[in-house]
Simulated scan of single mutants.
Amino acid sequence: MSLERTLALAAALTLPLQAVAADDPLKVGFVYVGPIGDHGWSYQHDQGRKELEAHFGDKVQTTYVENVNEGADAERTIRRLAQAGNDVIFTTSFGFMNATERVAADYPDKTFLHATGYKQAENLGTYLSVTYEGRYVTGTAAGLVTESNVLGYIASFPIPEVIRDINATYLGAKAVNPDIELKVVWVNTWFDPAKEADAANTLMDQGADVIIQHTDSPAPLLAAQKRGVWGVGQASDMSHFAPEAHLLSVVNHWGPYYIDTVQAVMDGNWEPADYWGGISDDVIQIKEINAKLTDEQRAKVEGVITAIKSGEFHPFTGPINDQGGTERVAEGATMTREELATMDWYVEGMTATIPK
């Protein structure tokens, strides 16, 4: 066989294989710390996954793994997804950070995105929703409706994301109610309905008449309605669980980010970045503000939303002192992403302590 005929045959045999490869769907994997039925954080990430599927149709094939423990289980799960041929892998909890970094180093041809962390590489980016914007709005609404001037916050783990959200809640409330006190109960879990309900009841026993949570089940909201106080929905719209108690929900809308990221990978122009999506990006949404608020109260809440969305106002613009009275943010200055990402202190006026 001549050399020319050999080359022509090889080219002909290669064409069908290339066509099949081009038609293969992009495989996208998701790792969730909780169940998709938590109606909170993991539920909303899964809603984003469904938006991704709806947008791309048969151009993508998604897989998810729920209830993944942070630590060795996370690394095994992420590695299995890489070995299974997933081209893009989203890991959606702070505690997955080190595991994601290790697996990404072993699979340089795949793209990894880690939610709420800070470690990056050539094939590893980070992303988060700017929940502190929603918490500031929450604090504003809570400070307006409270009668006891005591707010209760159910906190998951003492990581910067949770600490800055507690601070934002307090600052928002303090701006409209100088007599406010914010009590905090740490539960050391993202999802445990029984623990969350117990924490809510503990806070209500201490006088809190608005319950705010950084955990993922509707149990605190249900406990609030049972005792006739206000509650705030976490990550998804929780108004239908306890409509009488529901003050508002701070909703994480992940679909746009997942769609844009996967499109960038498909187009070959994805680059690692530290994405922060907030109210102006529609990644943070304020849903179902209770109709029982007065027109004046609603106007104040919506005014804060508008100011944050337009960029006119940032919740962490100084002057801001820490709990000990030391200036952390000068008057007129705004905290940088790096400063916010490492926040490990409470603002002045907070009486709670941060666990070590």
Rank of each mutant, 00 (worst) to 15 (best):
residue 34 G to F: 05
residue 35 P to K: 00
residue 36 I to D: 14
residue 40 G to C: 05
residue 42 S to H: 08
residue 42 S to N: 14
residue 45 H to E: 08
residue 45 H to L: 07
residue 46 D to H: 13
residue 48 G to S: 08
residue 49 R to T: 07
residue 49 R to L: 11
residue 49 R to S: 08
residue 50 K to N: 12
residue 50 K to L: 12
residue 53 E to L: 00
residue 53 E to V: 00
residue 54 A to Q: 14
residue 54 A to L: 09
residue 54 A to H: 12
residue 54 A to K: 15
residue 55 H to Q: 12
residue 55 H to A: 11
residue 59 K to H: 12
residue 60 V to I: 12
residue 61 Q to K: 14
residue 64 Y to W: 01
residue 65 V to Q: 11
residue 66 E to R: 08
residue 67 N to M: 01
residue 67 N to S: 13
residue 69 N to G: 15
residue 69 N to P: 02
residue 70 E to G: 12
residue 71 G to F: 00
residue 72 A to I: 00
residue 72 A to P: 01
residue 73 D to P: 02
residue 76 R to Y: 05
residue 78 I to R: 02
residue 78 I to G: 04
residue 79 R to F: 01
residue 80 R to D: 14
residue 81 L to M: 13
residue 82 A to K: 06
residue 82 A to R: 05
residue 82 A to C: 11
residue 84 A to Y: 00
residue 84 A to D: 12
residue 86 N to A: 08
residue 86 N to C: 08
residue 87 D to L: 12
residue 88 V to P: 07
residue 89 I to M: 10
residue 89 I to S: 05
residue 90 F to V: 01
residue 91 T to V: 07
residue 92 T to D: 12
residue 93 S to Q: 06
residue 94 F to S: 05
residue 94 F to R: 04
residue 96 F to V: 01
residue 97 M to Q: 15
residue 98 N to F: 11
residue 99 A to C: 06
residue 100 T to W: 02
residue 103 V to L: 09
residue 104 A to I: 09
residue 105 A to T: 15
residue 105 A to Q: 15
residue 106 D to W: 00
residue 106 D to G: 09
residue 106 D to Y: 07
residue 107 Y to G: 11
residue 110 K to C: 13
residue 112 F to W: 06
residue 113 L to V: 06
residue 113 L to K: 06
residue 114 H to I: 01
residue 115 A to Y: 00
residue 115 A to N: 00
residue 117 G to V: 00
residue 119 K to V: 09
residue 119 K to F: 06
residue 120 Q to C: 14
residue 122 E to D: 15
residue 122 E to N: 15
residue 124 L to R: 06
residue 125 G to H: 04
residue 126 T to S: 08
residue 126 T to P: 01
residue 127 Y to C: 03
residue 128 L to V: 09
residue 129 S to E: 07
residue 130 V to P: 02
residue 132 Y to C: 04
residue 132 Y to P: 05
residue 132 Y to Q: 06
residue 132 Y to F: 14
residue 134 G to S: 02
residue 136 Y to T: 03
residue 137 V to M: 04
residue 137 V to R: 03
residue 142 A to N: 12
residue 143 G to T: 11
residue 145 V to A: 07
residue 145 V to T: 08
residue 146 T to F: 03
residue 146 T to V: 07
residue 147 E to M: 05
residue 148 S to P: 07
residue 148 S to I: 00
residue 148 S to Q: 12
residue 149 N to T: 05
residue 150 V to P: 05
residue 150 V to K: 12
residue 151 L to P: 03
residue 152 G to S: 02
residue 154 I to V: 10
residue 155 A to P: 04
residue 155 A to T: 07
residue 156 S to R: 04
residue 156 S to P: 07
residue 156 S to N: 13
residue 157 F to T: 05
residue 158 P to I: 00
residue 158 P to A: 13
residue 158 P to K: 10
residue 158 P to Q: 14
residue 159 I to C: 13
residue 163 I to T: 15
residue 167 N to D: 13
residue 168 A to W: 01
residue 170 Y to E: 03
residue 172 G to T: 13
residue 173 A to D: 07
residue 176 V to M: 11
residue 176 V to S: 09
